[in-house]
Nucleic acid binder design. Structure first.
Lengths: 215, 215
DNA sequence: TATAAATACGAACGTATGTTCGTGTCAATG
DNA sequence: CATTGACACGAACATACGTTCGTATTTATA
């Protein structure tokens, strides 16, 4: 049922797409008319109706600028922005922010949508990974790790923990074990660290990883 | 110069953002009026002017629905959709598609934007990883790997290669070595595979990895 | 070539939408 | 208590924008 478009209709589609792209809104009949040197809005209207019939567009009567592109609208507009707050470097303490600052002041951000990662938008922040200090957690140099601010952890969750004696923060799997906590590297060949609960402070929890290896 | 907003103005901003998000167009004065139970368009207009003065938005007089978010990203910004074509299971041959099918027929997709991964949109497809056959490449169970369809590779690139004798496809680092090719696991403790160039077929190249560990 | 279907024309019209303006309320200030 | 400035009201108004309609042109079809 792939009805073909007339030249004019194809031109109109192209114009509407470009216009929407550039202006964040769809054009009016008259804008289309002027751009394509059509002599009457009724001609535009006529062809618009054809395009609607052919499924290329939707139109909302009663609403000015009511043209809508049928394709350009994956529901995933529920996109969330996450601020990139700094860097994790091998050995160096992780820069974990005290709190998430005002969105206005964010610099770099990562924008996620549910098709790729479905996170509750709450206390999220991101860090760039520098070096290979976390290969044992399957995290490489250049990765971006997504974290959520939180002070507690369930057993088995990977968290950023502040170690009081080392004066550093590292990324480990967390386990409560009665009077002590066990911090387990993801790499099974490495030894866990044990500590008293009040010697460690959970800074955040690992939610996801993004890695780009080529372009 | 961080002028603060009145409650009403904050509500209006919030509503306008949400409306724009959902409808791909900004609301009219009357829509704002109804939504926020304001009794006159003039009140809306008044506060809109305030918001413009405070730099929160731009307005295009002469144009209906002429409100523009200052921080607005263009509607169909450069977001790219990548079809999730199947699964990589440990041991099993990788399902690498012969070619990218028509977008119309895509089922699941991942949507990327340049803030998280900046890829040339050309021959891209994605696979879900099942099992731990690729931990040595820092790829875990549940990850989504992003690949590009291609038949050739530069030295050192991680590619999906079809092995003629094994009748399987695996993910390895690729090296030309004169008359043979070396397929090197990312894990240095594992032995490389050597093969004649005509016994292997490069199916695609690893572009990125997406991992979600919690929500 | 006759006829129908598709497309184009342009003006009139009606509604959607933004703007203006005189007036009113309320809190802060002196 | 008078003054002032921020904000709200509502109705009238102006114009941006979509729709309709009778008529012309072009294109396909018999």
């Amino acid at each position: 049922m792939k009805t073909s478009l007339s030249t004019r209709q194809r031109d109109m589609m192209q114009y509407i797409r470009r216009f929407a792209q550039e202006n964040n809104r769809t054009p009016t009949l008259r804008e289309i008319m002027d751009a394509l040197h059509i002599s009457s809005t009724s001609v535009v209207d006529y062809n618009l109706k054809q395009l609607v019939a052919k499924g290329e567009l939707r139109r909302n009567p009663k609403i000015s600028r009511g043209i809508e592109l049928t394709d350009a609208r994956p529901v995933s507009e529920d996109r969330i922005s996450i601020p990139i707050m700094g860097t994790i470097a091998a050995g160096a303490p992780i820069e974990v922010p005290e709190s998430i600052p005002d969105p206005q002041t964010w610099g770099d951000t990562v924008e996620l949508n549910p098709t790729m990662m479905d996170l509750r938008n709450e206390g999220l922040f991101a860090l760039r990974v520098k070096g290979y200090s976390m290969v044992d957690a399957l995290i490489a140099d250049g990765d971006i790790v997504l974290m959520r601010h939180q002070q507690t952890a369930e057993n088995g969750e990977t968290v950023a923990v502040w170690l009081d004696h080392e004066k550093t923060t590292t990324l480990k799997k967390f386990y409560h074990e009665g009077t002590r906590v066990r911090l387990q590297p993801a790499n099974v060949t490495m030894q866990p660290i044990y500590a008293a609960p009040d010697e460690v402070a959970i800074q955040g929890k690992l939610m996801g990883v993004i890695r780009q290896v080529a372009r």
